[in-house]
């Protein structure tokens, strides 16, 4: 039995990771740390876990050695203490942004932040199993993934990696849980509940992760809009290609890229009402659904790719657990089998 602990346990990502770990047959939760809720039952922060665990939050300073340590801190908190965390566990999965990028210069550019432990950056493997599976097997350190980056990476990868992609215009619609558990003026219910609010039309940080995964060989235009969802990120990518692709070619390309993937499903249905990926159907699941449509004869050989996921699961805690499974040699899908709910 693997003994796993986590920091930042009272946040939404921490709560989601706890939910998943509690359902994992090969994991025992040793400690869930939270400075703000030390001594309180886990269910005081995550009421869905009432009766599922009698675990109480511990103080981060009292963390003990364990097999795997998950860091669910806000961005910028884990990097400064990485030496301490590494002394507690051989395997670490950091769910924040602190080890996602490859260089200190990239953090200066995208986060305006001087990374306090740049020597650690090359030790971390980017935590997206679909593209870093072999590197993650047996790795000691895995980074988290940006939810908007992940939905975009999974949407664009087959086109980008085939060399066909000239330019992508990506709009991601996101739910409120992306902003975390701490309330702000923007998350106040009257301000957020009905919002369709473009909040980052240019310069979104997650573009750095798209570049890390897919390279620089295509133009990327990327915007993010808040919509009235709690969970979910849904990308619509208008992709302009170097040569035309028919719908059947798109199927062939995406089937070839994702056919054996356990958590990527192709959703481009010709009948019914759920023809393309919908984030609501994916709430609580580790799936990313990807769909597409060709636009024959359109200027720039346009095809449209859509993708959706739950930002707290495939966009955070689920990918992290998938990484842990690979890092310690377990079945990749262990603890991640929840198929979602319908109707909601």
């Amino acid at each position: 039995m693997i003994r796993a602990s986590l920091t930042g346990g009272s946040g939404y990502v921490g709560g989601e990771l706890l939910r998943l770990l509690l359902g994992h047959p090969g994991v025992e939760i040793a400690q869930a740390a939270s400075a703000s809720r030390t001594g309180k039952f886990v269910h005081t922060a995550h009421p869905n876990l009432r009766g599922v665990t009698d675990l109480k939050f511990t103080h981060p300073e009292t963390l003990e050695p364990c097999d795997v340590l998950f860091l669910c801190e806000p961005h910028g908190k884990a990097a400064g203490r990485i030496e301490t965390f590494a002394s507690l566990a051989k395997k670490i999965v950091d769910l924040s942004a602190d080890f996602r990028l490859e260089s200190a210069a990239a953090y200066e550019k995208w986060y305006g932040w001087t990374h306090p432990a740049p020597e650690w950056l090359p030790r971390f493997t980017y935590g997206l199993p679909e593209f870093f599976r072999e590197e993650l097997k047996g790795a000691d350190y895995a980074s988290g993934v940006g939810c908007n980056a992940t939905v975009t990476n999974l949407a664009l990868a087959p086109l980008a990696r085939s060399g066909l992609l000239e330019r992508a215009v990506v709009e991601v619609k996101v739910g409120s849980s992306e902003a975390g558990a701490r309330p702000t003026e923007a998350s106040h219910h009257p301000e957020r509940a009905q919002a369709v609010r473009p909040f980052k039309l240019t310069g979104h940080r997650h573009q750095a992760e798209v570049r890390r995964v897919l390279g620089e060989d295509f133009e990327l235009h990327f915007s993010v809009t808040s919509v009235p969802l709690v969970r979910g990120a849904a990308a619509t990518a208008h992709c302009f290609l170097k040569e035309p692709l028919a719908e059947k070619d798109l199927w062939k390309l995406y089937r070839s890229a994702y056919g054996p993937e356990p958590f990527v499903r192709l959703v481009a249905q010709k009948t019914g009402i759920h023809r393309f990926p919908e984030p609501a159907l994916l709430a609580g699941t580790n799936f990313c659904d990807v769909g597409f449509a060709a636009d024959p004869g359109s200027p720039g050989n346009r095809v449209i790719v859509t993708a959706a996921l739950d930002n707290l699961v495939k966009g955070a805690a689920g990918s992290a657990l998938q990484c842990m499974n690979l890092m310690i040699g377990l079945d990749e899908g262990e603890g991640l089998s929840f198929p979602g709910l319908h109707p909601l």
């Binding site: 199927w251 192709l266 249905q269």
Partner: peptide
């Protein structure tokens, strides 16, 4: 019949 992938009839 329905296609198992794209669902077309």
């Amino acid at each position: 019949l329905s296609c198992p992938d794209c669902g077309i009839e």
